[in-house]
Design a protein around this nucleic acid. Structure first.
Lengths: 202, 202
DNA sequence: AGAAGTGGAGAACGGACGTTCTCTGTGCTT
DNA sequence: AAGCACAGAGAACGTCCGTTCTCCACTTCT
């Protein structure tokens, strides 16, 4: 098996298992069994479990943010783009294997004992925060509003993770809409906002 | 040593250690060392570690909510009472040993593997949510606003836990103020709100 | 064909930790 | 004073798990 393929399979299995059961509840042998990559190869690719965890968080971070950006980029109007974030969160929450935010969970598990993991979590949250700041700036809003939108999103993730429902996304969206309106965003009033992509007319 | 005293000391040590380092990073022997309660006694009081964890979460929940309620009850005006929640969160975040929300952390660590722990987390978050719903109702606001206030608070806890700062509380407070204003709460406009307790004129 | 390197399966090692057990001392009861 | 219940200290046990090692089949190059 090619090294790249092995790496991909190992990370696929690690992501499935770590995210689904928690990092500490999954042994390297579980990863081996689920990926078909032998222990020897696993340790060649990732010399310690912690590095596999970090690689899992990094790869998931890249994909998560790419998917979010892709969804948001289906819209052009700045206010709509902001609200689209919460629509996308709602879709995420509805996925059958959704188990909360991988980074918040990892931080709860390892933040106090593993500096590399804690760093990855901070990096991910920082990048998401900057993404929202960018959206806010695009709507002519101050960065403070970006921070508020961030808090709403984080709260929705945590709440959806713990309660298992999807409606925190709707509540966060509604709150965001109010905040945008009060901040005088360059945006329509917008109950109709976000019901369908403007260009996704396929 | 009296049984009640031993229980209290065990829970004190468990709380300090579990909250500070994470549950899985702390062994029963650490609890023994920190509490001075022998292993035999520990297992008489809590037949398994999981029960010690549950007891820790329950006791902390009672104290956390009592302190929050106590702070909020220093105010009478409904809008002020709501904003006081975020002031209190800011005080909490500023405590030197603050390491995020104990329940969110515990859920990330054990939510997938321990149903009793997951139940305790849901119970705590449910109670906090109801507390905010009550405050919202007191201000003549619909329960939906309570949900939004809840998301802001949760987001602030997570963000403060990960980044280690206290300013998420201020950001959440500001967002809450905007939401209250937009929802037409029976409340003053309120930059001056919450700077000092109305009756704490000592 | 033979040699040498590669990779996989899985045993083995070492430490950590949840839980139980043993031993010893102590204070209380009769 | 003798016996007894209990408590503490800490050893012991069993399991789990991260990591390494052994052994063997297979490929590849000369």
């Amino acid at each position: 098996m090619d090294s790249e393929v092995a790496r991909g399979r190992a990370l696929d299995a690690a992501e499935r298992l770590f995210y689904g059961r928690g990092v500490q509840a999954v042994g390297m042998d579980d990863v081996r069994g689920d990926s078909g990559v032998s222990l020897k190869r696993l340790y060649q690719l990732f010399p310690a479990k912690e590095q596999l965890v970090v690689a899992y968080l990094e790869r998931r971070d890249a994909r998560w943010r790419a998917r979010l950006a892709e969804h948001v980029d289906r819209y052009e109007e700045p206010g709509t783009r902001i609200l689209a974030v919460y629509d996308w969160l709602g879709q995420w929450f509805a996925e059958p294997d959704f188990r909360g935010c991988a980074w918040i969970n990892a931080y709860g598990e390892l933040g106090a004992t593993s500096a590399p993991v804690a760093d990855r979590v901070r990096a991910h949250k920082g990048a998401f925060r900057e993404f929202l700041d960018g959206l806010a700036a695009g709507a002519g809003l101050p960065a403070a509003v970006g921070g508020q939108l961030f808090l709403l999103a984080e709260g929705a993730m945590v709440t959806a993770g713990v309660t298992g429902g999807t409606e925190p996304a709707r509540a966060a969206r509604e709150a965001a809409r109010v905040l945008l309106g009060a901040a005088g965003a360059d945006t329509p009033a917008a109950d109709a906002v976000g019901v369908s992509p403007p260009s996704a007319t396929r």
